[in-house]
Design a protein around this nucleic acid. Structure first.
Lengths: 207, 207
DNA sequence: TTCGGTATCACTCAAATGAGTGAGTACCCG
DNA sequence: CGGGTACTCACTCATTTGAGTGATACCGAA
């Protein structure tokens, strides 16, 4: 019987979730907590099969919660359960090893389906989340730093590891012009080197 | 009424799929093709809402098919429908803009659900696919270049944009030692600069 | 027409980087 | 014990880079 643990700071929501799950004879509720400070220990002791994890909790956020659980018991499936659609947090959770991502607007039946799905080795995601996840593989291009088209070209080459000289040759402009573009890019990204620019660009899905 | 087009080279499968969809009064089958060479034109002319696309087709593969469709009509949702679980092809499809990825073992009812889901703005994925997609955000660490633990530490700092001097300070080693590690990393990765190393490391999910 | 933004190019200078060479220590494994 | 690997450090040298400053040209909006 799948063992389930809930981390959720909203008392009302947590209790009603726990109540709902307890009414399902096919699950075993082995714990519910209003914070994830002790998630590591709890995970080691109770060995849950599925963890429902809220993101926005006082103290350690659920993003750390995922880490605590996964580091101590990788085979436990963690489903994020949150109101937020925040892109940054979403990707942090995924990188921390979350196995699913359901929005709190998810009706109880879909929640049960999701639990079944992670147990079966799947990855339940609310439709809007799934779409964002797939989108992250292609578009990106938030360009929140207002790079000009030319600067984006230069940044692409920079990311490919090109030196200023190679960029100049590739775009058929002078060495100093290439360097001028680079300097402007660094200013806009608030960094002081090409290496930082590459890290920021790839990390924040700018290109 | 959602307009649907199928690209699938297996005649029997394509025809039975088309037949199945035609029996559903809520969809309108506007075309079925055994290749995607003309996918661009077909898309512009018939303006489908949903495209079912096989990957493994003679001539242009379905990966190009996705591109043809998406370049000509981004609002058309493309669902990949294939027997393959090949990771490389999977990610190529996603990067090309696919909106869903269902395995051919998917029962018809789930297929209809998937079509509904893309139309609603979601991203239908077979469980095993969804899991792979999420895993791709964390797994990494193939270390096929045989970096030593220390070198991996250095590489991590390099990716964060640290200079040799900062790396030395952070690891409490001398400036020249930090540079020595960097030189060894560049050798192992077959690159000649920190920028290239960052690009390769992030691009190949080494770290 | 003036102003702002983009793109282009040049010059300087201190600092960082990549490449080469050499070498000492520590540890594990056979 | 010996050999291999990892980690450490130092020195040199040419090249690249980041930062500062300034200048010209084009274009579109005010």
């Amino acid at each position: 019987m799948p063992r389930i643990i809930i981390f959720e700071d909203n008392d009302k929501l947590r209790e009603s979730l726990a109540y709902l799950l307890k009414t399902q004879p096919e699950y075993e509720m082995v714990g519910e907590y209003n914070n994830c400070k002790e998630a590591a220990t709890i995970t080691r002791v109770y060995k849950p099969d599925v963890v429902l994890m809220d993101i926005d909790m006082p103290g350690d956020s659920g993003i750390n919660g995922v880490r605590y659980v996964k580091e101590n018991r990788p085979q436990t499936s963690v489903i994020m359960y949150t109101v937020f659609e925040d892109d940054e947090k979403l990707f942090q959770c995924l990188c921390a090893g979350a196995n699913g991502y359901l929005l709190k607007q998810t009706p109880p039946q879909k929640l049960f389906d999701g639990i079944q799905e992670v147990i079966a080795g799947g990855a339940p995601m609310s439709p809007v989340i799934a779409r964002k996840v797939l989108n992250s593989f292609q578009h990106g291009k938030s360009n929140k730093y207002f790079l000009t088209p030319r600067e984006i070209e230069v940044l692409h080459l920079l990311i490919k590891g090109y030196s200023a000289k190679m960029i100049a040759a590739n775009l058929d402009i002078s060495f100093d012009t290439a360097r001028a573009h680079l300097k402007n890019i660094y200013q806009k990204l608030h960094v002081n080197s090409g290496k930082e620019a590459i890290g920021k660009a790839l990390g924040e899905h700018i290109v």
